[in-house]
Design a protein around this nucleic acid. Sequence first.
DNA 1: GATGAATGAGGGTTCATTCAT
DNA 2: GATGAATGAACCCTCATTCAT
Lengths: 199, 199, 199, 199
Amino acid sequence: MLYFCGVISQSIMEKVDKIFEAALSLFTTKGFHGTPTSEIAKTAGVANGTLFHYFKTKEDLINNLYLKVKNEMVEESTKGIEKIESLKLKLEYLWSKTIHWAMTNPQKIFFIQQYMYSPYITSNTQEEVDKIKEVYTDLIQEGINNHEIKEIPVELIYNIATQQLFGMIQYLVVNPEKYHDSEFMNIAFNLFYDILKKN
Amino acid sequence: MLYFCGVISQSIMEKVDKIFEAALSLFTTKGFHGTPTSEIAKTAGVANGTLFHYFKTKEDLINNLYLKVKNEMVEESTKGIEKIESLKLKLEYLWSKTIHWAMTNPQKIFFIQQYMYSPYITSNTQEEVDKIKEVYTDLIQEGINNHEIKEIPVELIYNIATQQLFGMIQYLVVNPEKYHDSEFMNIAFNLFYDILKKN
Amino acid sequence: MLYFCGVISQSIMEKVDKIFEAALSLFTTKGFHGTPTSEIAKTAGVANGTLFHYFKTKEDLINNLYLKVKNEMVEESTKGIEKIESLKLKLEYLWSKTIHWAMTNPQKIFFIQQYMYSPYITSNTQEEVDKIKEVYTDLIQEGINNHEIKEIPVELIYNIATQQLFGMIQYLVVNPEKYHDSEFMNIAFNLFYDILKKN
Amino acid sequence: MLYFCGVISQSIMEKVDKIFEAALSLFTTKGFHGTPTSEIAKTAGVANGTLFHYFKTKEDLINNLYLKVKNEMVEESTKGIEKIESLKLKLEYLWSKTIHWAMTNPQKIFFIQQYMYSPYITSNTQEEVDKIKEVYTDLIQEGINNHEIKEIPVELIYNIATQQLFGMIQYLVVNPEKYHDSEFMNIAFNLFYDILKKN
DNA sequence: GATGAATGAGGGTTCATTCAT
DNA sequence: GATGAATGAACCCTCATTCAT
């Protein structure tokens, strides 16, 4: 994938990004099958064939898009976390950063939810995603070792925490005024933290 | 839709059900787009045209299937709940029945997860599904009124509880031996109940 | 074709006629291909299969309908002509009766115009129609023999006269008020008669 | 529609024209419904999808074909008419040129007759065709103003003349030897002209 | 005779992908 | 690299026709 290269001409960068942008919007609203590659190209303002210079197939496009969005979510929510000392504050940092990212990128979070279990996402991509999630599971494992988090399988905690976070985001998308209610958000975080914390 | 009628000849009933069964299996493994109607018909052992005799379009089929599966999940998990007195036991009943249903119908729970946010499911269907979920939200509201459940918006609790339950199911699907470990299941339920229960 | 029989139960008669009526209306407005037999049946108020009791195929239906309508046009326009003596008056009688029939049965004349050259009308049907038109060609031949009509091939005169009549009907359909203008109608007939009459 | 552009690569021009040619032949002999688009493409020597690259639907194809053929008929029959002075000679020129075109393009005239009243031809197309026919109605109006043509509504004269011409063409198609009989053709034209000319 | 569920061949159309320019 | 005309396989859906009741 050329777009991972560091030094690339501006115009090429722009084209790939426009394709990603168009694909994100269209896949989310119309579905994978409901979106012709021709429409993606048209929306992106490039020629039909150009799309296939950057992505071997349509599936290749959605898989790369999925990885890119997942990466972005993790990067955005973990950026600066190393400065924080206590585990609880780290978790709160992650939790609120993730929610912030979701609230400012509703289409992206919706895209993730929609294609998480879709058969278009290959197992190869899933494995890549699994590597990314180690950032989170390592933190959980550390908390277990320090007796701050319950002694429960890491995978289970991760699943439950992630899913619960998604449930919270869903609620905030429908009730965005709550997002600015700090008292509510405080209670909400404790709903999350209480599951993890020991005793 | 004839299959809603009470008295119907066996053979017609069988045909619609065979179509549902084939569609469930194929949509789950190959996706909506990846499954030709011809393959559904062939798998169901009926003619291609027969499918369109019962369902106006392929989308009509998946929407009816989604409703049917959702209904089944709720019915199976709530059957007999009226005999139980305490709220906590009611919640445990629902929780374990739902997990039991999911473990014995892995394809159905996977189908729900996969098509929950898909654009193929119309808003009309979503509204029907929302009516079904009242069984759960009524129970939560009752618990809030009795001061047994936290005073948090019902919608939020429902979202978080549901999503967390899905997280648990995902874990059990990957680690089925845990399902028979009653100690584990006990801890697991408390992870669920602790979020809901007041202090 | 059962509907040609003299003694038939009322209900059967009615069904065939309702099918004819529905087919006439639908074929004219939506075309042969654009009209499913199921819609004809539904419009006629009979079951889908009933149509195929009376007509072996859809083509059989349109061919019989075409013959029926053509027959009706000829019968309606020639009824009572035997009482008239002069050739000119006979022609005027035919001309005005045909126009009258067309104006009171616009759908039928439109149907004839539309399917006259259509490939759905078999050569067999065309031959039947050709037999019907002898009523007219015989009259023309008689006029030629009596030196009242130009000595031009009968077929040509018939073609020209028929087509010109259709041209007139088309005009009257668009401008129906002219139909009640007897001065106009008189001029119009002479446009028709002048081509035929010798000198 | 690219084929309307003046400067176009030969190969594109050829493809559209081959599709038109194939469609004309097949629609005329087998009817609109009786002709699969796949057969049109095959006959034209292009891929099935290519047809839909140039025409949005099958109906779009027949409408464009109808317009093209009508246009050709008018252009062929009016080419050079401006050099002729007298109205009678102009009419004779039009009449004989039209018949000539019809005799050398029997399939095209048959196509026009067959689809003139068909529901596949949209009202939009009919309006376009109506614009073309002004060439003729203007000429008739001019003749009426000069007291050379009967004072009868232009629309009526146009209808009658057109239809009568079609009647003549039909006759000539069945009896082509008459087309070379100049005495016959002379009489034939007078059958046409006598309706129009004043007294 | 009348019905209408069931059929399955067939057709219009779409669209991912290619490739010559 | 970028284009977009061309492709043709594949799919959803229609509908004339059958046949058991």
